[in-house]
Design a protein around this nucleic acid. Structure first.
Lengths: 256, 256
DNA sequence: ACCAAGCTTGCATAATATTGCATAACATGT
DNA sequence: ACATGTTATGCAATATTATGCAAGCTTGGT
């Protein structure tokens, strides 16, 4: 079993994933198997956790359980699943254990909700029933913002959402959007939806926009806040460099 | 059982869940099986309870009835589906088109949510995500009360629910319960849940309790309001006539 | 009211994680 | 080939977490 040749990081990660496929493994088991120090195994596991592929626990790690629970709210097919997933993984890297975060509606943010199992002891506030369904059994503390239900996005929106949002503060807010431009910032098709987004922008320590590049430069009907409310934009690699430059000029961090 | 190495926390938890799937287990049984101290078993059980997966009882633990893997819509594990359905139909008769109603958690109220399609232009306020899922595409206007998510009942509970409930008024509130006695009225296992029930009782024109006869005379931990807050009780036919007489004496309408 | 069994809490200890740092391996440009 | 900066790895000191044990309190049954 033990090959002489030294294994590269991605090879080790592959093996780790395969091992974890069957059952949980301890650090020492993996260290022995891979013939590297436990410190290195920990670093590998850390990296895999950042990618949302595994969950570290005291003493070892387990594979992420794709909670294949019943679709309380059945899901529509998302258009670019792999890009959304990549964006979600970048967003995951911004979250620390014990954070209080806000999750907005939209399929990209939903992709983030699905991999939140990699973190511990989060307090998640959301207006998205899809995200809520995803997190029901995550073990994280879950707070749902009340309000009028908007069937199209399956989110809670409108003036009533202010009642709860205004009493809370979140460390990081992850928002989705329909359109995003330099001039107007984020915009959506529904005024109530925009209203709620604006509320949470004010209550968030850090506002993080998740938007695949198809949203950039597009403008929709109802505008929420301004560009200056956004701290970070996470998007995919087909972002034009001109757009990226503009954002950075405004002091917005860009991750791709 | 090859106890070759130390088990990781999630492994233990998984085994515990599997064991409980069959029947209730005592702490000492689990301690023996997992080869850890009883203190550790208790900590594991505590964690599982926080996740809403089990319920701890004196001497051991049992699996939660509303367990994660159970499909929401085939919630046939409800103990008496046909009686709940009959109760729901009676409740439906109290609802008029264009009413504003409140739906509480619990399987009996959920049965009512499932047949609300028979009515038109309702405004439905609820703290139950199960009911919300049911009504998502019903065409009725849907308002969800925000708050802390309680996995056990899949409802929103606690102080935050007050933020929205207190700004609303509903014509009729349909409540479920764990226990119902002449002395104390309705009672549940969770203080936050009780708190929210009490709130809605104050904001409802008419409070209607849906309770199959197994709930009557039973008393649980946390009491919500008093008997005088209830206007109507809908139950099944195996209600004792003595109990019915007591209720009528207090001015409560009884439907069976 | 009593007792035994079970629960909670605080604490000591062992196991595991994290961090900083030194070194080795690697890549890059000259 | 060499020097140089970068990354990966291992090691060790320190911090954190999990576990078991024991004292005191609570529960449930008689």
């Amino acid at each position: 079993m033990d090959s002489k040749r030294k294994l590269l990081t991605p090879e080790r990660e592959e093996i780790i994933l395969a091992e974890l496929g069957e059952e949980a493994k301890t650090i020492s088991e993996l260290s022995l198997k891979l013939d590297v120090s436990e410190a290195t195994v920990r670093r590998d596991l850390l990296s895999l956790e950042e990618q949302g592929k595994i969950k570290r626990v005291h003493g070892g790690a387990v594979k992420m359980k794709f909670s294949e629970h019943e679709p309380v709210f059945n899901e529509k097919e998302s258009i670019r699943p792999e890009e959304k997933e990549r964006i979600a993984k970048l967003a995951l890297g911004l979250i620390e254990d014990k954070d209080t975060i806000y999750l907005d509606g939209g399929s990209t943010v939903l992709a983030l909700a699905k991999i939140l199992g990699a973190k511990k002891s989060l307090t998640v506030v959301t207006n998205s029933l899809m995200a809520a369904a995803e997190l029901m059994e995550s073990g994280h503390s879950l707070i749902i913002v009340g309000g009028k239900f908007r069937p199209l996005s399956r989110t809670l929106v409108g003036p009533l959402t202010a009642k709860i949002i205004e009493t809370l503060h979140v460390d990081k807010a992850f928002l989705g959007t329909i359109g995003f431009t330099i001039e107007d910032g984020i915009s959506t098709t529904d005024a109530d939806e925009a209203f709620t987004k604006e509320l949470i922008l004010k209550r968030a320590g850090k506002a993080i926009l998740l938007a695949d590049s198809s949203k950039l430069g597009k403008k929709s009907f109802a505008v929420s806040g301004s560009l200056s409310d956004i701290d970070v934009v996470i998007t995919d690699s087909s972002l034009s460099s001109a757009f990226a430059r503009e954002l950075k000029k405004k002091g917005i961090e860009v991750l791709t």
